[in-house]
């Protein structure tokens, strides 16, 4: 019996992509295997670790808990896309300076997760930062450096916003 296939057309990092996929393929496998976008990682494949976090239509989702076919017609952004656009350059710089990563496996997911907080909660407290990233597993850092880096970026964005308003 031939395996079912479906054609999907979606935007990935700004580029329109048309592919045939097996319906059972989840979004991260599609990004990694069909598009070679290997920056999104498979950590648990059951929605707990957050290493596969990507953006769909502007919101972060677990890439392992969404099928590629469900992304048909949607806009997907990955760490490669946001790195190239420079959208999270300040956050990435803060992570680097603060050594908020070690093995780096959780980092793309962590950055995208934190990026949503930067966009939606410009005055988030440390506690709120911890809450927001509480679904992203990091085994190396102990999280504090990550919280520091996000806090620093929030502060610098507020300062920039304040300056531009003034």
């Amino acid at each position: 019996m031939p395996l079912p296939e479906a054609e999907i057309c979606l935007t990935v990092n700004g580029q329109v992509v048309r592919k045939r996929v097996e319906p059972r393929q989840h979004l991260v496998d599609f990004l990694r295997e069909a598009l070679d976008l290997t920056g999104s990682h498979l950590g648990c494949e059951h929605g707990v670790c957050g290493a596969c976090t990507v953006r769909v239509d502007g919101r972060i989702v677990r890439g392992c808990l969404m099928l590629a076919v469900q992304a048909d017609g949607r806009s997907v952004e990955t760490i490669e896309g946001v790195s190239d656009s420079g959208e999270l350059a300040d956050l990435q710089h803060a992570f680097h300076q603060r050594n908020a990563l070690q093995c780096g496996f959780c980092t793309p997911g962590m950055l995208l997760c934190a990026g949503e907080l930067l966009a939606t909660s410009p005055s988030a407290t440390r506690e709120e930062i911890r809450e927001h990233i509480s679904g992203n597993y990091c085994r190396c850092t102990g999280y504090q450096a990550i919280v520091d880096a996000i806090e620093t970026t929030l502060a610098s964005r507020r300062a920039t916003a304040g300056a531009s308003e003034a």
Partner: peptide
């Protein structure tokens, strides 16, 4: 409920 990315979906 769960975490931000889960609540989004």
């Amino acid at each position: 409920i769960a975490h931000a990315a889960i609540r989004n979906s």
